[in-house]
Write a protein that binds this DNA or RNA. Structure first.
Lengths: 236, 236
DNA sequence: CGCCGGACTTTCACTGAATGAAACCGAAGG
DNA sequence: CCTTCGGTTTCATTCAGTGAAAGTCCGGCG
């Protein structure tokens, strides 16, 4: 008996769903994937995958690399960038962020990946991915490439190995921290906002190192869960 | 006799194509579109559009605004952001940029929209959209929202009306300029890179105001055309 | 050299998913 | 009350999409 083996996930029903799953195969993956790898990840038969991928390439959502493998293309970027600063996400998050602020006393914000930086929706700041809690959450979930690890303070993690092990730990625990790694005297905590299992953003709190931070963990997780649930609810 | 009126474009053949055209309907459009407006823009019958839109919403590529209209969603952003800095585009552009540099004597670069800024692929800089030639090209083609028009020099255009009329002129001529609007002593020219009629990037040249700039226009247009053709060729 | 195995591509008969005309709903407004 | 106009649902029709199987093109190995 064949073990039913779709890389863990059920195959998409509609054509549109199949197209989407091909795109999804690229997040949290190497930049470039070969056809069979995409098929494996999506659980689709190879010829079907080929047709999907071809249409995506023709449109510009994917592009072929020199060696024949595929990567996300210019058009999908253009569309993604045309999405206005996710007002919807921000609006949805504000109540949760407010209670988070009041429960922890720190600055609460929500960050989305944006071309190798974490864009904070409330403050508008861009933060480096490797030196902040929110950034690490995004990295841990496959966003951004980790580029040069620029040093910001004497506590910034600049060795890829250390960072990698932190990331895998973050994936396990669902919580990231940064101790004065971006600015001295500043401590931050972050958790992933999951929208049907894809991390689309990170909620985070920044506190002075001196402040108490006992309640932060649970408050943060709850905020993340609330926002994620809100996103899923908007699906109906 | 009904004038055949698909907003100018032929309807998509395949399901995937229809999904794509729905997404395309959002670039260069107001943040939020209602169902019938999407149908009009894509040339699809309304019920079909509804189905597409529903699947997109379920996936997270679109989201419903409070008033029932639609806007691009978090997932499409996440995917777009997962696209690595478009190496492909950069690689493809380098030769053209090199000849552009040698023909004009300035700094040549290519910029893509990224959350309300123009991200330069060669230099890595982010430029404001309203105060640079490349940014204006992107704005003129529906990228980024034009947010607060921050003043950078005494020549920065800060009145929305003036900018709007510049943009419409840019759309006509296919060329944008900025005279010391971002930095004093600096003059820049830009042209859109079209990939099957969607502007996905802007090539630009920056020169000291003192430098001669007679040959710039034609060199720039040619570079843009070369790169665009390269992108379309990658479609095969 | 010849054989093998793996990645990719094409073919093709079958079928159910997608289609869109038409009917329906309900809010706005005259 | 009637009309209009977005939005939604239904449903018979059909054709786009499907995927098993066969074919092609490597590149490695005995």
């Amino acid at each position: 008996m064949k073990p039913k083996e779709n890389a863990g996930c059920e195959v998409a029903e509609s054509v549109a769903g199949r197209v989407f799953s091909v795109l999804d195969a690229f997040v949290g993956a190497p930049d470039t994937l070969r056809l069979t790898e995409i098929a494996r990840r999506t659980g689709l038969p190879v010829p079907t995958t080929l047709r999907m991928v071809r249409e995506l390439v023709a449109w510009g959502g994917l592009e072929r690399a020199a060696d024949g493998s595929y990567r996300l293309g210019t058009r999908i970027r253009a569309i993604g960038a045309a999405a206005p600063c996710p007002r919807g996400l921000l609006d949805l998050s504000l109540p949760a962020l407010r209670t988070l602020t009041s429960r922890t006393g720190g600055h609460a914000d929500i960050a989305v990946p944006s071309d190798g930086t974490a864009l904070c929706l409330v403050s508008g700041n861009r933060l480096p991915l490797h030196a902040t809690a929110a950034g690490k959450i995004l990295l841990a979930h496959g966003h951004g490439p980790l580029t040069a690890l620029q040093r910001h303070t004497r506590h910034t993690v600049t060795t890829p190995g250390t960072l990698a092990s932190q990331l895998s730990r973050i994936r396990e625990t669902g919580l990231a921290t940064a101790h004065e790694e971006y600015a001295l005297g500043e401590l931050s905590f972050a958790a992933p906002v999951l929208r049907s299992d894809l991390a689309v953003a990170a909620v985070f709190v920044t506190l002075p190192t001196s402040a108490p931070h006992t309640r932060v963990d649970s408050a943060l997780r709850e905020a993340a869960r609330t926002i994620g649930r809100g996103l899923d609810a908007a699906t109906r």
